[in-house]
Simulated scan of single mutants.
Amino acid sequence: MQDGAPQDWLRSELDNTLDEDFELELEDAALSEEIAKIYRDTHPNQMPRADYFHGLLRLQSELIRLQDWVAYHKEKVVVIFEGRDSAGKGGAIKRIAQRLNPRVCRTVALPAPSDREKSQWYFQRYVPHLPAGGEIVLFDRSWYNRAGVERVMGFATEPQVEQFFQDVPEFERMLVRSGIRVVKYWFSITDEEQQMRFLMRIHDPLKQWKLSPMDLQSRVRWEDYTKAKEDMFERTNIPEAPWYIVPGNDKKRARLNCMAHLLSLIPYGDVPHHEVILPDRVFNPDYEREVLPPELYVPQLY
Protein backbone atom coordinates (compact mmCIF):
# COMPACT_ATOMS: atom_id res chain seq x y z
CA MET A 1 0.00 0.00 0.00
CA GLN A 2 1.11 3.55 -0.61
CA ASP A 3 1.77 5.91 2.27
CA GLY A 4 -1.50 7.15 3.65
CA ALA A 5 -3.56 4.34 2.11
CA PRO A 6 -4.42 2.64 5.47
CA GLN A 7 -5.47 5.99 6.94
CA ASP A 8 -7.60 6.71 3.87
CA TRP A 9 -9.27 3.32 4.17
CA LEU A 10 -9.96 3.80 7.88
CA ARG A 11 -11.36 7.26 7.22
CA SER A 12 -13.65 5.81 4.56
CA GLU A 13 -14.85 3.09 6.96
CA LEU A 14 -15.52 5.68 9.65
CA ASP A 15 -17.49 7.78 7.17
CA ASN A 16 -19.62 4.74 6.33
CA THR A 17 -20.24 4.13 10.02
CA LEU A 18 -21.29 7.72 10.58
CA ASP A 19 -23.56 7.54 7.53
CA GLU A 20 -25.38 4.59 9.15
CA ASP A 21 -25.75 6.52 12.38
CA PHE A 22 -26.89 9.65 10.57
CA GLU A 23 -29.62 7.67 8.82
CA LEU A 24 -30.93 6.60 12.22
CA GLU A 25 -30.84 10.18 13.46
CA LEU A 26 -32.97 11.70 10.68
CA GLU A 27 -35.73 12.40 13.17
CA ASP A 28 -37.30 15.19 11.11
CA ALA A 29 -37.06 13.54 7.69
CA ALA A 30 -40.51 14.54 6.45
CA LEU A 31 -41.57 16.81 9.28
CA SER A 32 -43.16 20.14 8.59
CA GLU A 33 -40.74 23.01 9.21
CA GLU A 34 -43.17 24.69 11.56
CA ILE A 35 -43.31 21.72 13.96
CA ALA A 36 -39.57 21.12 13.58
CA LYS A 37 -38.93 24.74 14.65
CA ILE A 38 -41.24 24.39 17.67
CA TYR A 39 -39.40 21.22 18.70
CA ARG A 40 -36.00 22.90 18.39
CA ASP A 41 -37.23 25.89 20.39
CA THR A 42 -38.46 23.63 23.20
CA HIS A 43 -35.16 21.69 23.25
CA PRO A 44 -32.53 24.45 23.29
CA ASN A 45 -29.81 22.46 25.06
CA GLN A 46 -29.58 19.46 22.75
CA MET A 47 -26.29 17.58 22.73
CA PRO A 48 -24.07 18.55 19.79
CA ARG A 49 -24.20 15.86 17.11
CA ALA A 50 -20.42 15.34 17.14
CA ASP A 51 -20.42 14.77 20.91
CA TYR A 52 -23.34 12.39 20.61
CA PHE A 53 -21.75 10.28 17.88
CA HIS A 54 -18.45 10.18 19.75
CA GLY A 55 -20.19 8.90 22.88
CA LEU A 56 -22.39 6.51 20.91
CA LEU A 57 -19.51 4.83 19.10
CA ARG A 58 -17.48 4.53 22.31
CA LEU A 59 -20.39 2.91 24.17
CA GLN A 60 -21.22 0.62 21.26
CA SER A 61 -17.62 -0.60 21.21
CA GLU A 62 -17.97 -1.43 24.91
CA LEU A 63 -21.23 -3.25 24.18
CA ILE A 64 -19.32 -5.45 21.74
CA ARG A 65 -16.90 -6.32 24.58
CA LEU A 66 -19.92 -7.10 26.77
CA GLN A 67 -21.40 -9.28 24.02
CA ASP A 68 -18.14 -11.24 23.66
CA TRP A 69 -17.99 -11.73 27.44
CA VAL A 70 -21.61 -12.93 27.58
CA ALA A 71 -21.02 -15.38 24.72
CA TYR A 72 -17.72 -16.67 26.13
CA HIS A 73 -18.97 -17.22 29.69
CA LYS A 74 -22.45 -18.42 28.63
CA GLU A 75 -24.06 -15.64 30.64
CA LYS A 76 -27.79 -14.93 30.34
CA VAL A 77 -29.04 -11.34 30.31
CA VAL A 78 -32.59 -9.95 30.11
CA VAL A 79 -33.10 -6.21 29.72
CA ILE A 80 -36.68 -4.93 30.00
CA PHE A 81 -37.64 -1.60 28.43
CA GLU A 82 -40.86 -0.06 29.66
CA GLY A 83 -42.27 3.46 29.64
CA ARG A 84 -44.98 5.65 28.22
CA ASP A 85 -45.72 5.59 24.51
CA SER A 86 -43.13 7.59 22.53
CA ALA A 87 -40.76 7.68 25.54
CA GLY A 88 -37.81 6.46 23.45
CA LYS A 89 -37.64 2.75 24.29
CA GLY A 90 -37.37 1.64 20.69
CA GLY A 91 -34.66 4.16 19.86
CA ALA A 92 -32.53 3.03 22.81
CA ILE A 93 -32.99 -0.64 21.91
CA LYS A 94 -32.03 0.06 18.30
CA ARG A 95 -28.76 1.76 19.30
CA ILE A 96 -27.87 -0.98 21.80
CA ALA A 97 -28.39 -3.77 19.27
CA GLN A 98 -27.12 -1.86 16.22
CA ARG A 99 -23.58 -3.29 16.13
CA LEU A 100 -24.13 -6.52 18.05
CA ASN A 101 -24.38 -10.05 16.69
CA PRO A 102 -28.11 -10.87 16.31
CA ARG A 103 -27.30 -14.45 17.29
CA VAL A 104 -26.18 -13.14 20.68
CA CYS A 105 -28.40 -10.09 21.19
CA ARG A 106 -32.01 -10.22 20.04
CA THR A 107 -35.04 -8.01 20.53
CA VAL A 108 -38.43 -9.36 21.57
CA ALA A 109 -41.53 -7.25 20.89
CA LEU A 110 -44.58 -9.46 21.26
CA PRO A 111 -47.95 -8.56 19.72
CA ALA A 112 -51.23 -8.60 21.61
CA PRO A 113 -51.95 -12.08 22.99
CA SER A 114 -54.09 -14.47 20.97
CA ASP A 115 -57.22 -16.07 22.43
CA ARG A 116 -55.20 -19.19 23.15
CA GLU A 117 -52.46 -17.22 24.91
CA LYS A 118 -55.07 -15.39 26.99
CA SER A 119 -56.10 -18.77 28.43
CA GLN A 120 -52.51 -19.67 29.42
CA TRP A 121 -50.57 -18.93 32.57
CA TYR A 122 -49.83 -15.23 32.14
CA PHE A 123 -46.03 -15.54 31.95
CA GLN A 124 -46.14 -18.54 29.62
CA ARG A 125 -45.79 -16.71 26.33
CA TYR A 126 -42.73 -14.81 27.58
CA VAL A 127 -40.82 -17.84 28.84
CA PRO A 128 -39.84 -19.23 25.38
CA HIS A 129 -38.08 -15.93 24.63
CA LEU A 130 -35.84 -15.99 27.70
CA PRO A 131 -32.12 -16.31 26.96
CA ALA A 132 -30.05 -19.45 26.85
CA GLY A 133 -26.40 -19.34 27.84
CA GLY A 134 -24.49 -16.75 25.84
CA GLU A 135 -27.53 -14.63 24.93
CA ILE A 136 -28.84 -11.13 25.62
CA VAL A 137 -32.58 -10.52 25.21
CA LEU A 138 -33.99 -6.99 24.97
CA PHE A 139 -37.73 -6.90 25.74
CA ASP A 140 -39.46 -3.99 24.00
CA ARG A 141 -42.29 -4.09 26.53
CA SER A 142 -42.67 -7.21 28.60
CA TRP A 143 -44.82 -9.00 31.13
CA TYR A 144 -45.32 -5.57 32.70
CA ASN A 145 -48.03 -4.95 30.09
CA ARG A 146 -50.40 -6.33 32.71
CA ALA A 147 -49.45 -3.60 35.19
CA GLY A 148 -49.74 -0.89 32.53
CA VAL A 149 -51.82 -0.93 29.35
CA GLU A 150 -53.86 -4.02 30.26
CA ARG A 151 -54.82 -2.55 33.60
CA VAL A 152 -55.51 0.99 32.40
CA MET A 153 -57.43 -0.05 29.29
CA GLY A 154 -59.47 -2.69 31.10
CA PHE A 155 -58.00 -5.69 29.26
CA ALA A 156 -57.26 -7.31 32.62
CA THR A 157 -59.51 -7.50 35.67
CA GLU A 158 -58.39 -6.18 39.03
CA PRO A 159 -58.12 -9.75 40.42
CA GLN A 160 -55.83 -10.60 37.47
CA VAL A 161 -53.72 -7.52 38.14
CA GLU A 162 -53.49 -8.37 41.83
CA GLN A 163 -52.45 -11.92 40.97
CA PHE A 164 -49.77 -10.50 38.67
CA PHE A 165 -48.38 -8.31 41.44
CA GLN A 166 -48.22 -11.31 43.76
CA ASP A 167 -46.55 -13.51 41.14
CA VAL A 168 -44.07 -11.24 39.38
CA PRO A 169 -41.58 -10.75 42.24
CA GLU A 170 -41.24 -14.51 42.71
CA PHE A 171 -41.15 -15.06 38.94
CA GLU A 172 -38.22 -12.66 38.63
CA ARG A 173 -36.48 -14.14 41.67
CA MET A 174 -36.75 -17.53 39.95
CA LEU A 175 -35.12 -16.08 36.85
CA VAL A 176 -32.29 -14.60 38.89
CA ARG A 177 -31.79 -17.85 40.83
CA SER A 178 -31.53 -19.68 37.50
CA GLY A 179 -28.60 -17.44 36.53
CA ILE A 180 -30.40 -14.82 34.43
CA ARG A 181 -29.40 -11.21 35.02
CA VAL A 182 -32.62 -9.15 34.97
CA VAL A 183 -32.36 -5.41 34.29
CA LYS A 184 -35.51 -3.24 34.18
CA TYR A 185 -35.62 0.27 32.66
CA TRP A 186 -38.49 2.75 32.73
CA PHE A 187 -38.19 5.58 30.20
CA SER A 188 -39.82 8.67 31.68
CA ILE A 189 -41.02 11.73 29.75
CA THR A 190 -43.21 14.68 30.66
CA ASP A 191 -46.78 15.24 29.55
CA GLU A 192 -45.66 18.10 27.28
CA GLU A 193 -42.91 16.05 25.68
CA GLN A 194 -45.24 13.17 24.86
CA GLN A 195 -47.73 15.58 23.29
CA MET A 196 -44.98 17.06 21.12
CA ARG A 197 -43.77 13.65 19.99
CA PHE A 198 -47.28 12.51 19.14
CA LEU A 199 -47.79 15.66 17.05
CA MET A 200 -44.52 14.95 15.26
CA ARG A 201 -45.66 11.44 14.46
CA ILE A 202 -49.03 12.65 13.19
CA HIS A 203 -47.35 15.06 10.76
CA ASP A 204 -44.47 12.80 9.70
CA PRO A 205 -45.48 10.17 7.08
CA LEU A 206 -42.43 8.09 8.02
CA LYS A 207 -43.61 7.79 11.60
CA GLN A 208 -47.40 7.69 11.40
CA TRP A 209 -47.27 3.88 11.61
CA LYS A 210 -45.99 4.26 15.18
CA LEU A 211 -49.31 5.75 16.30
CA SER A 212 -51.99 3.27 17.35
CA PRO A 213 -55.41 3.76 18.93
CA MET A 214 -53.81 2.64 22.22
CA ASP A 215 -51.23 5.44 21.90
CA LEU A 216 -53.94 8.05 21.43
CA GLN A 217 -55.86 6.70 24.42
CA SER A 218 -52.71 7.04 26.52
CA ARG A 219 -53.03 10.82 26.09
CA VAL A 220 -56.59 10.75 27.43
CA ARG A 221 -55.60 8.50 30.34
CA TRP A 222 -52.29 10.14 31.29
CA GLU A 223 -53.15 10.29 34.99
CA ASP A 224 -54.40 6.69 35.03
CA TYR A 225 -51.08 5.56 33.56
CA THR A 226 -49.23 7.62 36.16
CA LYS A 227 -51.09 5.92 39.00
CA ALA A 228 -50.52 2.49 37.43
CA LYS A 229 -46.78 3.22 37.04
CA GLU A 230 -46.43 4.31 40.68
CA ASP A 231 -48.27 1.21 41.86
CA MET A 232 -46.04 -0.97 39.66
CA PHE A 233 -42.86 0.53 41.11
CA GLU A 234 -44.10 0.05 44.65
CA ARG A 235 -45.10 -3.59 44.12
CA THR A 236 -42.31 -4.85 41.83
CA ASN A 237 -39.14 -2.94 42.74
CA ILE A 238 -37.29 -5.86 44.36
CA PRO A 239 -33.59 -6.06 45.30
CA GLU A 240 -33.02 -8.97 42.91
CA ALA A 241 -34.43 -6.98 39.96
CA PRO A 242 -34.80 -3.28 40.75
CA TRP A 243 -36.25 -0.65 38.47
CA TYR A 244 -34.04 2.05 36.94
CA ILE A 245 -35.65 5.25 35.63
CA VAL A 246 -34.21 6.86 32.51
CA PRO A 247 -35.18 10.55 32.07
CA GLY A 248 -36.15 10.58 28.41
CA ASN A 249 -37.04 14.13 27.37
CA ASP A 250 -33.62 14.39 25.67
CA LYS A 251 -33.48 11.34 23.39
CA LYS A 252 -29.75 11.39 22.75
CA ARG A 253 -28.74 11.75 26.38
CA ALA A 254 -31.29 9.12 27.39
CA ARG A 255 -29.79 6.58 24.98
CA LEU A 256 -26.22 7.23 26.09
CA ASN A 257 -27.11 7.23 29.79
CA CYS A 258 -29.02 3.96 29.45
CA MET A 259 -26.18 2.28 27.56
CA ALA A 260 -23.55 3.48 30.05
CA HIS A 261 -25.67 2.34 33.00
CA LEU A 262 -26.28 -1.10 31.51
CA LEU A 263 -22.55 -1.55 31.01
CA SER A 264 -21.93 -0.51 34.62
CA LEU A 265 -24.22 -3.25 35.97
CA ILE A 266 -22.39 -6.21 34.44
CA PRO A 267 -18.81 -7.16 35.40
CA TYR A 268 -17.68 -7.91 31.84
CA GLY A 269 -14.08 -7.95 30.71
CA ASP A 270 -11.84 -9.03 27.89
CA VAL A 271 -12.02 -12.65 26.77
CA PRO A 272 -9.62 -14.74 24.66
CA HIS A 273 -9.96 -14.35 20.91
CA HIS A 274 -8.55 -16.55 18.19
CA GLU A 275 -6.27 -14.68 15.83
CA VAL A 276 -8.06 -14.10 12.55
CA ILE A 277 -5.92 -14.79 9.49
CA LEU A 278 -7.36 -14.34 6.02
CA PRO A 279 -6.50 -17.44 3.97
CA ASP A 280 -5.29 -17.21 0.39
CA ARG A 281 -7.88 -17.74 -2.29
CA VAL A 282 -7.64 -21.06 -4.09
CA PHE A 283 -7.14 -20.36 -7.77
CA ASN A 284 -8.13 -22.99 -10.32
CA PRO A 285 -6.89 -22.09 -13.82
CA ASP A 286 -9.47 -24.45 -15.38
CA TYR A 287 -12.44 -22.74 -13.74
CA GLU A 288 -14.43 -20.34 -15.89
CA ARG A 289 -17.14 -18.26 -14.28
CA GLU A 290 -20.49 -18.56 -16.00
CA VAL A 291 -22.16 -15.46 -17.38
CA LEU A 292 -25.51 -15.01 -15.65
CA PRO A 293 -28.55 -13.67 -17.50
CA PRO A 294 -29.13 -9.94 -16.94
CA GLU A 295 -32.69 -10.43 -15.63
CA LEU A 296 -31.23 -11.94 -12.45
CA TYR A 297 -29.67 -8.63 -11.49
CA VAL A 298 -31.34 -5.88 -9.47
CA PRO A 299 -31.89 -2.82 -11.68
CA GLN A 300 -29.17 -0.20 -11.10
CA LEU A 301 -31.42 2.79 -10.42
CA TYR A 302 -28.92 4.67 -8.24
Rank of each mutant, 00 (worst) to 15 (best):
D167E: 11
V168I: 04
P169G: 07
F171Q: 11
E172K: 09
R173A: 12
R173F: 14
L175T: 13
V176G: 15
R177E: 08
G179P: 13
G179K: 08
V183S: 01
V183N: 06
V183M: 08
V183A: 10
V183C: 08
K184E: 12
Y185L: 05
W186D: 06
S188C: 09
S188P: 03
T190A: 10
T190Q: 10
E192T: 14
E192A: 12
E192K: 14
E193D: 13
Q194V: 04
Q194R: 07
M196K: 15
R197M: 12
F198G: 11
M200R: 05
R201H: 03
I202W: 10
I202L: 10
I202S: 11
H203F: 03
D204L: 07
P205R: 04
K210H: 04
L211F: 13
P213Y: 10
P213H: 09
P213N: 04
D215C: 13
D215A: 11
L216N: 05
Q217P: 12
Q217C: 00
S218W: 09
R219K: 15
D224K: 15
D224A: 11
Y225E: 10
K227S: 04
A228C: 10
A228L: 12
K229A: 09
K229V: 02
E230C: 08
D231N: 11
D231A: 05
F233I: 08
F233V: 09
F233Q: 04
E234Q: 07
E234I: 00
E234K: 01
R235A: 09
R235H: 03
E240I: 14
E240R: 06
A241M: 02
W243K: 15
Y244C: 01
Y244H: 02
Y244L: 12
V246K: 00
V246C: 00
N249P: 09
R255D: 01
R255N: 03
N257M: 14
M259Y: 07
M259A: 08
H261F: 14
H261I: 08
H261Y: 06
